[in-house]
Amino acid sequence: MENVIEIKNLTHYYGEKKVYENLNFSLKEGRIFGLLGKNGTGKTTTINILTGFLKPKSGSCTIFGEESYRLSPETKSRVGFLIEGHVQYSFMNIIQIEKFYSRFYPNWKKDIYFELMSKLKVNRNQKLSKMSCGQRSQVALGLILAQDPDLLILDDYSMGLDAGYRRLFLDYLKEYSKTEGKTIFVTSHIIQDLDGFLDDAVIMDYNGVVTQVSIQDLKQSFSGFTFKTTEKVQLFKDNIIVNFEQIRNKMTVYSFKNEEEVKTHLSELKVEFSDFAKIHLDLEDSFIGLTGKY
């Protein structure tokens, strides 16, 4: 399978301020990716570069083999882009906006759009600007799905949506992703929702530290362990302890290693421990485990 998105040695600065240096990751066709990261880790920068609205200082970002800020019209028609906040032409109504977009895309799937619209309780002449945020998100989604792109880039689809609409949004996306060869790239600040949705995650941390893992691997190999220890014990991150957290004498340690290896490692470090237990991690826990709470 070819790489749909390929980011190589991507470096960006805002003036003197470094966002990241030598960022590398790539996305394979047909999978659902989540770009996860806390605010300020360069998520928005990456999305901007990816969608061609920011020229990186150096390095390259390609989509279907083309430089992302110089996509040809043909490639652009293969990429569906949901702007943060579901921004659309809010001066149009449901009918107008469909009429507008349909002429641009040869494989326009009118039915998908109107199916989605029929579920919204809105008047067809109602302008998008007069709709609720949730309704607008459905219009934006309907338009992207009707476009039938090979790659979908969804910048914070969950913004301003309540649980119902978030679920609806993902349900439709899931349905769509079952079609052959569709790749989805999504960012969200509500990571819980993405559990069971994503295939892979790219997790960004401060200073451009990036972990790319498949969710399957993450679930299988990334674990948290709790144990009791003395208050004055000092732990450091190393190649076994990815992250740790200490609340008085209660310690939580995150690691890609199994229980035995972690225990051995702790012993080597001469850390006393008791009540050692493995904890179940969902996606959000893993994310926090990897990047910390701060």
Partner: peptide, 9 residues
């Protein structure tokens, strides 16, 4: 919103 127009094919 100009992003939408510039993303058109």
């Amino acid at each position: 919103r100009l992003k939408l127009a510039l993303h058109l094919p």
